[in-house]
Design a protein around this nucleic acid. Structure first.
Lengths: 196, 196, 196, 196
DNA sequence: TGATAAACGAGACGGTACGTCCAGTCTTTCC
DNA sequence: GGAAAGACTGGACGTACCGTCTCGTTTATCA
């Protein structure tokens, strides 16, 4: 009822155009970086008029976020692996791999550049950050459930300690490889065990 | 010897102008953000011609980093506090406070946007990131020295686990307050102790 | 003294650019018409940035007027021809010829479209309209001087009756040829003689 | 026979819409000038879709001409006034008054901007220009009929000399008042009489 | 009376051009 | 002879309209 404000008047928006824009934007973002992601270039690449882009997104940052969101696909694999620590290792290796690509760097740049309060920025964080975090949370929840006491108090903190250092290293241009990933998980598991 | 390359010919560079540029850049960066930090605006604000800016810095990112570096002041207080855990708590509270400001946000944005390989970017990270990290490292070194075994292997990793989550939270626009800071230190200390 | 506000600082404006702009604008105006005289096309044609054009002229109309003014060259020939009526015939034939070209049509279109009150519009009329009118005025003055009485009262009116019908016909797309020109002069001369 | 191309199928065109368009166009033309007469603005003002406008007229110029034609109302008064010179004076005063308004200026601008060869442009000139001219022609014909010889040869030329200067002055932004009108008629009548 | 066809409003489409901002470079004069 | 300052070329911005194209809806006529 609240969404009934659109009586479906006028020519409907072209889904084809919208997708072409997102595709072109994604390509430019990955290939050339956020600084080179100009609306003009996207319009030319997508074979679309500039106003069509502005009808959906207010500026290049928003478009970049939308393009990244549209390509979110996180491997859901994880929870099934039996030794839960191994599951965590596999997941972390996956996350490290994903964020060590060009795409990963652009995600960070885009996130840092975006207006933090905008709706799209929230959606972006929800999709990209929470997307990875969710899997880790599932595994950690199972891991913690094996303990007698309920440990939910520190759950989110553990997640911060798992993913935080990765982003920190990416941001500060430090190496992030398999060894790094393994030790990060090992230390975290050790901490959790210490917490009984 | 290295400065002998300047035979002191021609009009000398104006130190006044250089400082005015850095001041104007810093002001614009903090007040309006990196996206609004244009060379043109800085030139106008500093009462200087654009080429004068370009003579020192190659682009707006470099200027932003230089302006931030020029204002680095970190409280060296730390190591003297006797219970080392309290020292760590005090330090972390300090870091959280510093990076929770507008300046802190701009540091992250600048770092994310900068060309990661440039000399100035390395200097920037050395100054800003390593600046805070150094103090933490001193405290942790003392803390670890009280143990029998040498724990240097994990030292840098502990530091990542201390600062990483903070930057991660700042990047993802999550709250970072005193409670957060305290728990971060508490958990880290617990982990270190678990490592014997 | 009032123009001493410019202490001659910075790079001087490029006369080459200014002339290239006027040339390109003139070409486009004549070839394609005022409606097709876009700033963008002129910039491209002149090999110049758009801001350089806007630094001199506020819009396409002003540029069109400036381009037309820059090409004003009216044959000064006239007054020397001895039978003054023949001089007037020659002059009128000249004016008809000039304004029957593409250039003539664009002058009228430009004049009609321009903001009538702008300084440049006044200059434009002064240059283009008054340019032709001046010669006619000289001849008519000589013609009238042969009379006993001073006829200045009607002089400007005679000029209106000489040029007015021409522009009227051009505006309304009526034919203007040699016959027209001759009869126009003949009738005017007859009127002047009737006025004694 | 020519209108039999419409088999009267489908919804008939809305006369209400057509009139609303012309009204809105006229209002915008007079109030804001031809340059501001955009199809989009007319559509909004008339509460009509853009295609409805394009169904009738090909572009803004045509619409402007149509809007001006639709409002042609010329006082037919004239020929009855007995001293024919007085009739001509009255008519000219009327014409001067009509064309000295904002509407008059827009007529000239529209005429100058229009594609001279289009059908509508011809109709426009026929309506607006010929509309005034017709009355003058009637009066002049009566005036000339009083002469012995047939003077038709110069009739159209006299008309040009009557109306031409007026449009010329309007185009060049010169004053056109009652005095001007009176003298214009006086001089023309003098010329006609001189022609015997 | 119901199908059909065209005009209707609304508004999105691919485009062009607008006038502005800023980037980074070039050409003067100034010290 | 290099620093300083402003004009330069050029690219992109975000907006206004262009003229065209769907849509769903309305209003007539024809069957």
């Amino acid at each position: 009822m609240s969404q009934s404000t659109k009586p479906k008047l006028g020519r409907p928006r072209s889904e084809v155009a919208r997708i072409a824009i997102l595709d072109a934007a994604y390509r430019l973002l990955i290939d050339r970086g956020l600084g080179r992601l100009t609306i003009e270039a996207v319009a030319a690449e997508a074979g679309v008029g500039k106003p069509t882009i502005y009808r959906y997104w207010a500026n290049a940052q928003e478009l970049a976020m939308a393009a990244l969101i549209a390509r979110t696909d996180f491997r859901k694999s994880g929870t099934k692996i039996v030794p839960l620590v191994d599951a965590l290792q596999a997941h972390m290796a996956d996350v490290v791999k994903v964020f060590s690509t060009n795409r990963g760097r652009q995600i960070i740049t885009t996130m840092a550049s975006a207006d933090a309060e905008s709706e799209l920025a929230k959606a972006f964080r929800g999709q990209i950050i929470e997307g990875s975090r969710k899997i880790g949370r599932e595994i950690l929840t199972s891991l913690l459930a094996q303990k007698t006491v309920k440990q939910d108090i520190n759950l989110e903190h553990y997640l911060d300690m798992l993913y935080g250092p990765l982003f920190y290293r990416l941001l500060t241009n430090k190496m992030t490889d398999k060894d790094y990933s393994e030790r990060a998980v090992t230390l975290l598991v050790r901490l959790i065990k210490a917490d009984k």
